[in-house]
Design a protein around this nucleic acid. Structure first.
Lengths: 224, 224
DNA sequence: GGACACATGTAACGGGTTACATGATTTC
DNA sequence: GAAATCATGTAACCCGTTACATGTGTCC
């Protein structure tokens, strides 16, 4: 039990703390909900949960469907203790993978059509996810949420999720609008337009009062 | 040259397409900018760039500082071709890691103080990053951006970055406000409040016109 | 009773992270 | 001239991903 747990370990323990699940159910739940805040491949779960059991943080019990076995996992007291300790440690910052931004950065070597297609793809994905978010929202509003007794917590998560998606959706809209005008503009005109956009971005101005800490590229050290 | 390139490979090629860099500079630039859209550990870069050179997608040349060597990398025509091909493939959806959400989900087993501390931490990180974003914004507005001739593209990235951070900042504010009221409420009152929040979330209602495709939990298949 | 989807995982490879190492340059 | 910081990476382990495998209901 002395290996160092990863955030993925804690993510699994978090799921187990809610109620016992079979390994398969764990994976399904995580595909449906947890994927959005801690996305990992499915088969990593099967391996990790076994390790958690070896560490004594979860208990396994075997059930059968016909002659086929399935494993049910349940969190132990030791597991809950470990979770509580984790809550007292500093939390990592959020981070994002956003491939379309990479493609935007080298748009000049590709065609405008490709870039537009990529952006539309992201928009379609985003709207799919928005539909899904709306569905979950209704589930809770109608009292049939998967964890209805924690609606007050889930509501905050759904709020975040929908806010994020709406933000992305709107950004893609704006960006498509800009990209569509590129063809009629010289580079100088485009860059002029770029400066207009930058001037309109709602950035917080640094307080004129002296800041003791320099503006670092975010706190990287604390990150696991 | 027949291995399968990862998105990280393409991210590096994207950087190389802008101009030649030494390995160390590549890492620094990526820490400063690319980290926010494709975050990877630094030492992975040194290994990956060497492989790209082996594959003929980049050229190495050795310089010296005193007796210490440093390697400069430059993209090749083959590398540019590979990048162009990549632009024609479907783009992956965005994804996010957000540890504090995991902690929120099991808040009941911890203390309210811990949760508040975690949320404030995220807020502090977010505001640091906002400061950084504002700094980059000013660099471009004042004509001294690192890639000033691509201001029209960078502006779109900065727009996204600042929008995201503002969204997170506002969400944390709302959420802290909610959490602070928990102590005076019963579980039933909290869940009642949760439903109010959900009712206020701006979800798109599904069009009543028949949708052919079912609302799936986002397109996972296309990923990679 | 064959096809197909759902349930329940295992194996192997390679990318990602953490830890370490050493040469130059600046600071005081 | 010692200490700290910047520059420039390497090594090894472990997690994450991709591919595969097999059993079990269910549809028609």
């Amino acid at each position: 039990m002395n290996r160092k747990l990863t955030t993925t370990s804690y993510a699994l323990l978090t799921q187990l703390a809610l109620r016992p699940w079979s390994a398969y159910e764990l994976v399904q739940q995580r595909v449906r909900y947890f994927r959005f805040v801690w996305p990992k491949a499915e088969s990593a779960i099967y391996r990790e949960i076994k390790k958690l059991a070896e560490d004594g943080l979860a208990e396994m019990s075997i059930e059968h469907t016909g002659r086929r076995p399935r494993t049910i996992y349940q969190i132990t007291e030791a597991g809950l203790d470990v979770l509580r300790e984790w809550l007292a440690t500093p939390v990592g910052p959020f981070s994002m993978e956003f491939e379309v931004m990479l493609r935007l950065f080298i748009a000049p070597i590709g065609t405008r059509q490709q870039l537009v297609a990529n952006l539309r793809q992201v928009q379609a994905d985003t709207r799919d996810m928005l539909m899904f978010g709306g569905e979950v929202n209704r589930e809770y509003l109608e009292g049939r949420g998967a964890l209805q007794d924690q609606a007050y917590i889930r509501a905050l998560g759904i709020d975040f999720f929908i806010s994020l998606l709406n933000m992305v959706d709107q950004w893609v809209d704006r960006t498509l609008g800009e990209v569509e005008r590129w063809d009629d503009m010289t580079i100088e005109e485009r860059n002029q337009r770029g400066l207009e956009i930058l001037a309109g971005v709602p950035v917080a101005m640094p307080e004129q009062t002296s800041r003791s800490t320099p503006v670092a590229p975010a706190s990287q050290t604390r990150r696991r």
